[in-house]
Design a binder for these strands. Structure first.
Length: 344
DNA sequence: GAGCCGTGGCT
DNA sequence: TAGCCAAGGCT
């Protein structure tokens, strides 16, 4: 069975030539492709985990302006790093990035060059280590991400296990230009061999592709969306609003600042009553509502506002809109704040 | 190994 | 419009 993935040399090199040729003609200009600074490539790879290039770009620029090098991240507080990440999602990435920066700085401050040492960094798995090693240091390591897995599956007309994908990627790896080749494979996957309606006529690999646009059963992952209700309470005191730090026992948005919040599979009225009880309030005004999805849950969120005097129970701070960026928060908070500010 | 963690552009 | 799904890693 193993032999099924040992390619004749000529077809492997043809595959590589086509991939690299396409890349040469079509590669996008991206800020992390300006040079081979491992720090810049590392940041890009962490941000790009489960996140599209288009979304990452503004965050990447902002992050590099605020934290231009490894040392600036290591010397910053975790909160500053996570604040800069607010809105990007998967906030653990930011915390682990900060931990990794400190880890590197205690080990001399030089970004590790060895694959195995890169792999030891928090938040860096096999994919990310391979990406950094190959792109920044031209080390001969493959990458397998969602794009590569989909491209391989279609190209060979078969759904491969994770393990086989890595073997495949390894056996197809060129001797040189490994970083370009890895990026090329992913970019072809993202832009040509995309999940739906692949652009086969534009694909450099279509000639030997086993499916050529024909659907491959089982390629899509099953999802079971679920709807829930959410209510956010905006306590108001002198142009400021009360934000709580969600503790680490929370399921979602842990260690982030948020309006007092209740959610579940119950009605808005019940959630609102719970919130009012918590703060000893008799009533609150409806400020508006919005939709927000976290993972496979669609939240129908409404915001209620009430003025408050004195100190609310629990741990929190009064925050003015213009200081929100000092507190790591989800985009839920942004959406809620937008409802509280009269538009002009 | 499966479940879990955010978000919003795209179709 | 609304669902789909992304340059994964950790537990």
């Amino acid at each position: 069975m193993k032999d099924a993935f040992a390619f004749p040399m000529h077809s492997a090199s043809r595959f590589q030539r086509r991939v690299l040729g396409w890349y040469q003609r079509n590669k996008r200009e991206l800020p992390w492709r300006d040079n081979r600074d491992p720090y810049r490539i590392w940041i890009s790879e962490i941000m790009l985990q489960q996140t599209r290039v288009k979304i990452v770009l503004p965050y990447y620029r902002k992050f590099l302006t605020r934290f231009p090098d490894l040392r600036s991240v290591a010397s910053a507080e975790e909160n500053e790093v996570v604040s800069c990440w607010s809105g990007l999602g998967y906030y653990r990435r930011a915390r682990e990035l900060h931990r990794a920066a400190r880890q590197i700085s205690t080990q001399g401050g030089e970004f590790p060059r060895e694959f195995s040492r890169i792999l030891e960094l928090p938040g860096v798995g096999r994919y990310t280590a391979g990406a950094i090693a190959s792109i920044a240091f031209d080390a001969r390591h493959p990458v397998v991400d969602g794009n590569v897995r989909r491209l391989f599956s279609r190209y060979f007309g078969k759904l491969f296990s994770e393990t086989v994908c890595w073997q495949l990627a390894d056996s197809l790896l060129p001797k040189r230009q490994v970083g370009d080749y890895n990026q090329a494979l992913m970019e072809i996957g993202a832009r040509i061999c995309r999940p739906k309606k692949p652009l086969c006529p534009a694909c450099p690999l279509v000639q030997d592709c086993q499916t050529r646009g024909r659907p491959l059963p089982g390629l899509q992952r099953p999802v079971t969306p679920q709807a829930q209700t959410m209510v956010l309470l905006a306590l108001n005191r002198e142009e400021k609003f009360w934000l709580e730090l969600r503790d680490s026992s929370q399921r979602i948005l842990k260690n982030l600042w948020c309006f007092p919040m209740e959610y579940g599979q119950v009605g808005t009225g019940e959630l609102r009553r719970r919130l009012l009880r918590r703060f000893g309030l008799r009533s609150a005004a409806q400020a508006g509502s919005f939709k927000h999805s976290i993972m496979q849950t669609r939240f129908h969120s409404s915001v209620v506002v009430a003025s408050f005097r004195g100190k609310p129970p629990g741990k929190g701070v009064w925050v003015a809109m213009e200081n929100l960026n000092q507190f790591p928060h989800s985009s839920i908070v942004e959406k809620a704040f937008a409802l509280l500010t009269p538009c002009e």
